[in-house]
Design a protein around this nucleic acid. Structure first.
Lengths: 201, 201
DNA sequence: TGTACATCAGTGAACGCGCGTTCACTGATGTAC
DNA sequence: TGTACATCAGTGAACGCGCGTTCACTGATGTAC
């Protein structure tokens, strides 16, 4: 049995995500984790070298699941608004369904142990979004993508606080980047509304 | 001498901001603070009731200074793009000059003790930005303002990592909200480029 | 089939450390008379 | 002016607690012969 998929390891990660949903990441102690997972404290160190190691694994799992959902929802679509929209919806709805969102999205950025990991995830998302935004006519696709990822994370956090989708906030997001908040009449095409190109005289 | 402005209190807050610049907020211990401030440990509790109390004060001071700079830079301008631009520049340049930015902007959101405070600050900024965005033609000014604040914070963090302004990132920001990245030729007016109004067909 | 040994996840008591907080005390300054 | 007392910022040793980590051990399973 590969160490990576060992059931006890999964149980420990499950416990961590559940606990991260209830409290701050900084209060996620090994005592709490093993209590929730119903294993002995020593078992924790059979599967993880340290708390930092565990937090990284936790974040990888969270973002891995999220990314898989996004790929499944958007892989078949044509580049541009419709794919970006589908991917974003998958991200937001995935966050609403996931556990530990606040911890993984927000607090993890402040934990030195996981900061790099979070930065890498955000960069991956941004790199995926950039060509879509370029297709929509953005003049600085990479930079716009970075801002877009930040906005989507903000939407996720706001929705998390209320526990449900925030339609007008999502509408504001789509307006900013020039994608129709609802699918166009029908068909595969994107509702294209190119971004403003440049900015000033 | 009012407790609020007592010199030792300021020294303790100064020390905290300096230390927050070096390490994570979670590692900002009272031992470190009093060592940096060169006072006895007990003195800390003369001025603050608890660590949580101190963190709130630290955040208030950080955002108070920043907000003062923003007001000074933008109070005289007319509503709309030019004021929003001036305020944002003051925010971003203020962050580049300030200490403890990462801790106050990012990590503080994850610390239960300061989370409310951060939410309140962000809301204040968003409330200030909303009428400007409305003047620019945003259909969901309040929501757009919230996203705008998130973007500006992201820009601040990116710039902080490099230690200097990121021109293309700022340009992408202005493009998204439809404000010219540079002043128009001359004069007081805003370079108005209304946001796209709605989105659907 | 039976015996000896290797492997490895799991156990939980124990350790040491750093933390936030407390408290009895000091010493300087101000006030009353 | 001198004496007694009140106030209050400052001190630093001490406390207790919770934390991450270690380690000698257990018990089940697999393998060799």
């Amino acid at each position: 049995m590969p160490a990576h998929t060992h059931p006890t390891r999964q149980v420990l990660l499950d416990a961590g995500l559940a606990l991260a949903d209830e409290g701050a990441l900084s209060t996620l102690s090994i005592d709490l984790i093993v209590e929730k997972a119903a294993v002995a404290k020593g078992t924790f160190y059979v599967h993880f070298r340290s708390r930092a190691d565990y937090l990284v694994a936790l974040h990888r799992r969270f973002h891995g699941d999220l990314a898989a959902g996004i790929r499944a929802a958007s892989a078949d679509l044509a580049q541009g608004g419709s794919r970006l929209r589908a991917a974003t919806l998958a991200y937001l709805d995935g966050c609403l369904a996931a556990r530990g969102v606040k911890a993984m999205l927000l607090e993890a950025r402040g934990e030195p142990a996981v900061a790099e990991e979070v930065a890498a995830s955000n960069e991956r998302f941004a790199r995926a979004a950039a060509p879509e935004l370029r297709a929509l006519g953005a003049r600085h696709p990479a930079e716009t993508a970075r801002l877009f990822v930040a906005m989507v994370a903000e939407v996720a956090l706001v929705e998390l606080a209320k526990g449900r989708r925030n339609t007008s906030l999502r509408a504001a997001l789509w307006n900013l980047i020039g994608v129709a908040p609802r699918w166009p009449g029908r068909g595969v095409g994107t509702h294209r509304r190119p971004l403003r190109g440049g900015a000033g005289p």
